[in-house]
Design a protein around this nucleic acid. Structure first.
Lengths: 213, 213, 213, 213
DNA sequence: GTCTAAACGAGACGGTACGTCAGGTCTTGAA
DNA sequence: TTCAAGACCTGACGTACCGTCTCGTTTAGAC
């Protein structure tokens, strides 16, 4: 048996040698993918187009990613990581001044701003849409991007529970949805305008309830 | 000049004579579109496929609808209308037993069931996804399907306000999102499981707030 | 049995009542067909186009003619008849001055002129082309248009045989092809230019042969 | 710089790399094109049909040929070349036994046989018909296929002139039409039957003339 | 410092679906 | 019933991408 054969038998041809991967190509593909999604939208973004724009052969994309959705998702994750690093430690925890309502309002206002940022809007909308219809991608999108952010709310709510600002029997994972999901739905489905007043109101309603005290 | 001549002079060739439209074809196209979306999913549903399955020329589709999304949306609206008519007056108002929490829980449990119905899931997911990325379609989807349902919640909450079960200063249109949007997001984005307990909890949290009394 | 059934059984639907046929439409269709063939060529002449130009419904054409070729052939035959009537008796016989060569040259020169007439060229080329590939139409084209003209040559050659200007053992139907067919082929297949000198030469060669005497 | 690079720089994207062309596909397309023309005729032969029959993507045809006519013409030229190679040197010159009449009769009899060969008849009739109505194609058809054959007659007649069997003042290019064109017209237009006697007679008439000596 | 195997750019390949268009058939309403 | 109008079904058009598959050409690790 030739030595290279044994090498091949341990490595399927569908799993190329990652150590020899071209970093240049990877970066160029991320950039091209995000640029195209932003410019022409996700459906009209094609793998051929990404390859052409990145100055890369189509096979280089098909070698490393199984689908267009994966390329765009990974490119977006990369972008988010870079943005997070640029923003410093803020990404690791929500502010905790002791005033829960104020802290939540602050963070949600920042989210409102982010949702209006065109650089994020096009790709994240595209991925969200794909995730609606493609469960596997949707779950990955949530696990990699959404859930880590929601965990910060959970932490902050736990802290509030410890401080007695939130009832102990409340499930934080559900509670956070009271103010996060309405904002998400308005953004995703155009069911209403998004503003600081709106998110402030959400926090107030969620914390105090809508029933009379 | 005959009346129809003036009508014709204002109609260019891109807007065919709707009075001569074939009802048979329209129905067949609706059925085929919904069936295909349910069977192979929205992305793999093609206009060619709809035409073939409906026993209809492609041009007959392109003549009356500008895009695949429009065909499916209209087909889905038609389906919803039929379902509403079959269900009778239930669609016109939420139950109002005087017990707001119980009424909301009941309706949300019904929604949970509906969201698990495969006949509705495939097309509505497809349309929601398309609406995320296609604002025009999204707004139409909301206006025609979502908003009418949300209005029923508004009405019920107004009634509750009159009965003193909800604070008078609360905006019902926002308040309803406290329990509707979380469900919607879990369904759309797979951010969590959907169950009766979950929706019951949402109603409790929303009505009573999460802060201690 | 319903009354209309008996009506149908006595009259096949493919043979409508000719007595009620609109002469106006027939003429308009002939004119439109020839005009279109001349303007855009035979292949791009469509029954739809003829109907639109004639101000006639498509079905009116399909009712009376089985194919585009038939419409054009009939229109062309009609045109030829009219032209023949306008030209008087010249169509019934070739000139017979006693000088066979001169007579033939004269007639062939007239043919050269006719072949250069755009009003005749487009439809006759179109019909000839169709006839090459559609034997049934080709034979009809020949029988109705070509053969009557060739018969005049036969007559003239018979007269020449009687006068001793053509050998008695020569078959006139074949002999005429010596000068007619070369002209036809050059015209049909663009195998060479067409001029008076050319046709004169053909007559000389055909009458005298090309071998030395 | 490698030589092919400079070649590439002068070639835009509309002229693909011919060196990478698939010979298998080219052959399959030729075969399919000729088969379809023979079976259903030229007008009903479609590029889609050729592609399907050849087991080839449509784009592979559009990549290399600008039109259906070009595909079929090229396929037919290829067929002719192969037939010529199979026939050996006969294609390069007419027989020259010294007996002009006998040589011409022999060749014309072979032509008669060829005209009756179904493998040749369908595509050449289709191309001839198209050429009648499409001058550009017609001229190409003549230049590539007809004229090379006629040149052989010109050569043989020149040889006969040198031998004193044809008058020196005769133009061979015209003279050959005396026996070639009648046969062509009968075949193209169904103006008469085609037989050995007929072509023999044509040669006799053409060489000796039809006038008495 | 070679050697060599894999990743690379390029792009041709067999396909699918696109959206447009033309053509023959079928349906409707006016005369 | 004929006719005009035009919607219908069919199917070919030429284009855009798909995902696969070679081609040479880098390129980077092992010898």
């Amino acid at each position: 048996m030739a030595p290279n054969e044994s090498a091949r038998s341990t490595r399927d041809k569908h799993t190329p040698d990652a150590t020899r991967r071209s970093e240049r190509s990877r970066r160029a593909i991320y950039d091209a993918a995000l640029a195209l999604v932003a410019e022409v939208g996700y459906p009209r973004t094609t793998i051929e187009g990404i390859a052409a724009r990145a100055g890369v052969g189509k096979q280089t994309i098909y070698r490393w990613w199984p689908s267009k959705a994966d390329v765009v998702l990974e490119a977006f994750l990369d972008l988010s990581e870079q943005a997070a690093q640029a923003a410093g430690q803020e990404a690791h925890a929500l502010p905790d001044t002791g005033d829960l309502a104020a802290d939540l309002k602050l963070v949600l206002r920042a989210t409102v701003d982010e949702l209006h940022d065109p650089a994020f809007e096009a790709p994240s909308r595209a991925l969200a849409a794909e995730g609606v219809v493609n469960e596997e991608l949707g779950r990955r999108f949530v696990a990699k991007l959404l859930e880590p952010q929601l965990r910060l709310y959970v932490d902050r709510l736990r802290s509030a529970q410890a401080a007695g600002d939130v009832r102990a029997d409340v499930d934080p994972r559900i509670a956070l949805e009271l103010f996060v999901s309405p904002l998400a739905q308005r953004w995703l489905q155009y069911t209403g305008p998004i503003s600081y007043e709106y998110t402030d109101t959400l926090v107030d309603y969620a914390l105090g309830g809508i029933a009379p005290r």
